[in-house]
Nucleic acid binder design. Sequence first.
DNA 1: GTAACTGCAAAATATTTGCATCCTT
DNA 2: AAGGATGCAAATATTTTGCAGTTAC
Lengths: 145, 145
Amino acid sequence: MHAPAKSTDSKVADILRRKNLSITDSRRKILALFVASADALTHSDIERKAGEKIDRVTVYRTLQAFVEKGIIHTIPTADNAILYALCRDCQEGHHHDDHVHFVCSNCNATICLDDIVSPRIELPEGYRAESTQVVIHGVCRNCAG
Amino acid sequence: MHAPAKSTDSKVADILRRKNLSITDSRRKILALFVASADALTHSDIERKAGEKIDRVTVYRTLQAFVEKGIIHTIPTADNAILYALCRDCQEGHHHDDHVHFVCSNCNATICLDDIVSPRIELPEGYRAESTQVVIHGVCRNCAG
DNA sequence: GTAACTGCAAAATATTTGCATCCTT
DNA sequence: AAGGATGCAAATATTTTGCAGTTAC
């Protein structure tokens, strides 16, 4: 098993420090999960992956704090499970919601495609757009084989 | 105030009949809400608007049945409230999910813009898109007024 | 008449809150 | 040392399930 790379660990600490959150075990572990995995996680993913050591309530409060601080964001999904993801861009400080999310119908992973900018869409007369969120369902790189 | 048009009532009955669902009071009332209102509804919207007469459990089961039969569909939202909406096109039989949803940040209504087709989006190598859902936040026609 | 639908009660889940204790700074 | 974070217990809220009575066809 790969030991948790020191780089991940310090990256995590950096993020927390930058956001004025005190650095605790729970937060380190949970944030590390996001940094480590490319795809979005549900509350129960996190509970499961973090092992038995973290209280359910702490997970709630931690996710809430992360969202408030802009470290992670929620992703709307068709089946309305609440997904949380950290985006590369958000890490850098300038949080932007207008990116594309991809949900793999095979492995069920949800991935932030930060590089892809949401398109401008022509709206009917009278509507004014402020932000555009796109969720694409399909088959991801891994599953397409 | 407009009396509930007879046309709405027969429209509702038509839809139920076409989908092989028996025509009951609850279903008629709930489906009428969708037909009547232009925007999407949450579970609690429905409970509230339907009056005290409909049991919470019946609402759950009715919405589930409607979704299964393709009468309504769920809309993913940024705040992860579960929204249900009937789409003009879905009524006609050929259900397509690839339409644009608009959420008004002022009046909070969610509207299906059935006329607007989701754009094709260029994906990274290896990804295959099957469907594209777009949610645009902004100010709707009424509120922009 | 039969199968399906509803409403009530209750179980199973999910989320929030209060508070004493522990940990970070 | 002080303020914030955690974990436990318990309060709420949400969703699901079972079943007896009712209704649509």
